[in-house]
Simulated assay, not measured.
Amino acid sequence: MTTAATATVGSAAATGPQSTAVRRLLALGRAEATLLLRNRTAMFTALLLPLFLVVTLRGTLAQQAESNPGLDVDSLLVYGSVGMMLSFVVYYNLTAAYVGRRGELVLKRLRTGEARDIEILLGTAVPSLALGLLMAAVIGIGGTVGLHLSVPVNPLLMLVGLVLVLATMIALAALSSAFTRTVESAGITTLPVMLVIQLGSGLFFPLETMPAQLADICRLLPTTPAFQLIRVGWFGTDGSAAATGFAGSWGAAAPHLVTGAIWLGLAVWGAVRYFRWEPRR
């Protein structure tokens, strides 16, 4: 009787919900989302600060349009706003999250369970990714409708660029966390990358308004290629040539695809090489 009961219980347990990568990612994401919602500083940085920068961006673009009459201010405003939103919500917030969970020994404890390293890192990133994509979608769709912008020339290319942006930012956040001792110091250690993203990726200052040599250098920066892919997919041009259609956009995007893939590989290598799972003693 006891043997039969034990076998029944064992059989029921075996047929219960199995632990899969998706289940583990969702569980880690829910836990991280709860912590994010409770952190007022993180929510302020994620929601209010980017909106303030959007207002600043409009004024900056309006001034540049005075010396560049052909500049499409409305298109660049929406494009730049989406980029800035993703940089703050994903890169900055995720860097602080990795540092905070490391200091609380959460990452170290998670490694003793079933979750693999990549699942822990991606699970921690789920809330930032979801919030960033939601806000970017609101700005992109709202701005497009409100400003009567044209529909994307190549949505597939936009998707490739978005995936490349997010993957690069996750890797850069993991890499930056290795050089960040506390959550409070994240604002300092992430500043160089934030400046590169905001000023060098064509978000605040379009590359076509820069001197030619400076623009060529900026096109080789880590996040510029991915953002340029989004711009080409949306408007059919990165500002260096006339707009093209669906077929022509792939040719315009080819250099950005190559450069972006190289930078993503370097960022992932750096994250794997230097990321720390517990505080340095």
Rank of each mutant, 00 (worst) to 15 (best):
L47K: 05
Q63M: 11
F52S: 13
L36I: 00
R24V: 09
G123D: 08
P225M: 11
T3E: 14
L25N: 08
T237V: 10
A254M: 05
L156F: 09
A7Q: 13
R219G: 02
G70F: 05
L76H: 12
A212I: 08
A241N: 14
F246T: 09
Y92V: 11
L26P: 01
L164E: 10
L162G: 09
L48T: 14
W277Y: 12
P255Q: 11
T2N: 15
G103T: 10
L107R: 01
L53Y: 00
M85Y: 01
T95N: 13
D72I: 03
E208W: 05
S128G: 07
R40I: 06
S19P: 07
R219N: 07
V55G: 11
P222C: 12
P50H: 02
I141S: 09
I170V: 15
A97F: 03
A62N: 13
S240R: 09
P155G: 11
R181S: 13
A96H: 04
E32R: 04
W234L: 09
Y98N: 04
R181T: 12
N39P: 02
T189P: 07
M85P: 03
F179E: 04
T168A: 01
E278K: 14
T15D: 14
W277N: 08
S185F: 09
T223V: 15
C218M: 14
T182C: 04
P192M: 05
N39H: 12
L166F: 01
S75Q: 07
G270R: 04
A215D: 01
M84W: 01
T224R: 03
V145S: 02
E114D: 14
I230E: 03
N68Q: 10
T259F: 10
V153Y: 05
A136N: 13
T95P: 08
Y92Q: 10
V138T: 14
M1W: 15
T41Q: 12
L37M: 05
A4E: 12
Q64S: 00
E104V: 02
G132I: 02
F204N: 06
L266E: 02
L47S: 11
V258E: 04
Q64R: 06
T41D: 08
A27G: 08
A115S: 12
I141K: 01
V232T: 09
F275A: 14
A167E: 04
N154H: 09
A215G: 08
R181Q: 13
V90P: 03
P206E: 06
W269Y: 12
V163C: 14
G161N: 04
A4D: 14
G10R: 15
T45I: 08
T56Q: 06
V73H: 05
A243K: 03
A226V: 12
G202P: 00
G16W: 14
Y79H: 11
F52W: 10
E184C: 08
C218A: 15
M135R: 01
A4R: 13
R280C: 09
A243N: 05
L26V: 13
A31T: 05
M135F: 12
L147F: 11
T209S: 05
V258R: 13
N154D: 06
K108F: 15
P155I: 09
G59H: 08
A173V: 07
V160A: 15
D216N: 14
A33K: 01
V78E: 08
L129T: 10
P192F: 10
T15S: 15
N154A: 03
S87E: 13
V196T: 15
A115W: 03
P152E: 11
R181F: 06
R219V: 00
R40H: 06
M135P: 00
G142W: 12
C218S: 08
A254K: 00
